[in-house]
């Protein structure tokens, strides 16, 4: 099953490589990985999506917790949560296709953020499924390039991942 694990990580050189190294060293799988600073300059927040049965996920969280640079983590998929990913897509847009791209973007609540005579650049956010569906819908028109951020997530309600 797919899990989204969010990690508060010491903002130290090499910390990220310890996390990534752990996954390859122990044969755990990484689907997406996303990392950025938080409001606390000493911490980064890292979100990884991974696939595995309960035993594997238990091992992943235990081994992550053992890393000295990992301050705290949560498996968001254990509770209600919000999952978002941002994607930028360049689509070939000539002639009739220009309208088609615009219409499809509207349906997905995506925005066109850059335009040339032959290319539209579309920005879209949502969960991974929505982004996949958008890619599928645009494919026949002609996708030129895709840039996805990887999944980020947060728990719903009052639940917090803080120190």
């Amino acid at each position: 099953m797919r899990h989204i694990i969010s990690i508060l990580l010491e903002n130290e050189p090499g910390a990220l490589s310890r996390v990534v190294g752990l996954f390859s060293q122990r044969n755990f799988n990484i689907e997406t990985l996303n990392v950025a600073p938080t409001e606390d300059p000493s911490l980064s927040r890292l979100t990884v999506t991974t696939v595995g049965d309960d035993r594997v996920i238990e091992q992943i969280t235990k081994h992550l917790n053992k890393l000295i640079d990992v301050v705290k983590l949560v498996d968001l998929t254990e509770g209600n949560h919000i999952e978002r990913e941002l994607m930028l897509v360049k689509v070939k847009s000539l002639g009739a296709a220009r309208d088609e791209v615009k219409r499809t973007a509207d349906i997905f609540r995506a925005q066109i953020v850059d335009v040339t005579p032959s290319v539209y650049t579309v920005q879209i956010t949502g969960d991974a499924g929505k982004l996949d569906a958008f890619v599928q819908a645009m494919a026949p028109i002609g996708i030129l390039e895709v840039a996805r951020t990887g999944v980020s997530g947060i728990a719903r309600g009052d639940k917090l991942l803080t120190l």
């Binding site: 050189p13 090499g14 310890r18 190294g21």
Partner: peptide, 14 residues
């Protein structure tokens, strides 16, 4: 050496 030893240390510092 921090990179080389990463999988075989409890932790490392520079």
């Amino acid at each position: 050496i921090v990179g080389v030893t990463r999988p075989v240390v409890k932790h490392s510092f520079s």
